[in-house]
Amino acid sequence: MSTPLLSVKNLCVTFASRRGDFQAVRGVSFELGRERLGVVGESGSGKSMTGRAILGLVRPPGRVTADRMELEGQSILNLPERRMRKLRGSRISMVMQDPKFSLNPVMTVGDQIMESYRLHAGGGRAAARKKALEMLNAVRIRDPERVMDTYPHEVSGGMGQRIMIAMMLAPDPQILIADEPTSALDVSVRGEVLNIMDGLVRDRGMGLIFISHDLNLVARFCDRVLIMYAGRVVESLPARDLHNARHPYTQGLLRSQPRLDTPVERLPVLQREESWRSGELDPLPET
């Protein structure tokens, strides 16, 4: 088996608080190849914190520990901020939930994409501009020349998210971490953004970590799914088998969603069990 793109073993994120330490992530292990990996869970399950930990974006008082966190065999655990900054963007990128907050409001869209590209790849303005146009084309923005000169507030949510993706993909990273990239978007735009991301990831042979609370979306869009509960991975399975999940938490989540095709009088409510917090997980299936 070749080295995976990303290998994480026993990742923990701990926050010190007045009432003792709080562990947001408790011993998460997984490997990421050139695939689309979904990370699903409810708020507070530690799914976003896992993504932030990989990017080295956990701020004090949070502490990140792990037995192993390697990018293509090279450790990236608690790297000094300077080296981490080099890594972020050029080798691992992140798309956040709301483009409104992740785009700089006083810079034109074009300038931002060009800057993100030149920061990591260097090169002159002309080359950067060419690359930016190419990226905007890649995310299927019509009339990229015009969009280059607009400011973030002049574009719609779906367009903003596509611009974000263009910006993040400009330096050709190996791993893209997408944290709820479509939650702020309307359903009709959502499909389009997902398709674009899917195509890009597939064409470039990237690894994608797709963090979401939406089980159905992940089931449709990813290859493999990790289900997180209270900072732990409680189940890991191929996305197409999600509806045959064995863990009672996953089953409970699936059942508690209202469905148009199968109306029920009362939605089954998830009964949480203490054992889910501590129960041992089956060893990771070999990939």
């Binding site: 409810e42 089954p268 409510v269």
Partner: peptide
């Protein structure tokens, strides 16, 4: 809200 909480609130509203 999360889906499991959504189920609780929807039941409550009903």
């Amino acid at each position: 809200l999360d889906v499991s909480v959504q189920a609780e609130i929807l039941n409550l509203l009903k």
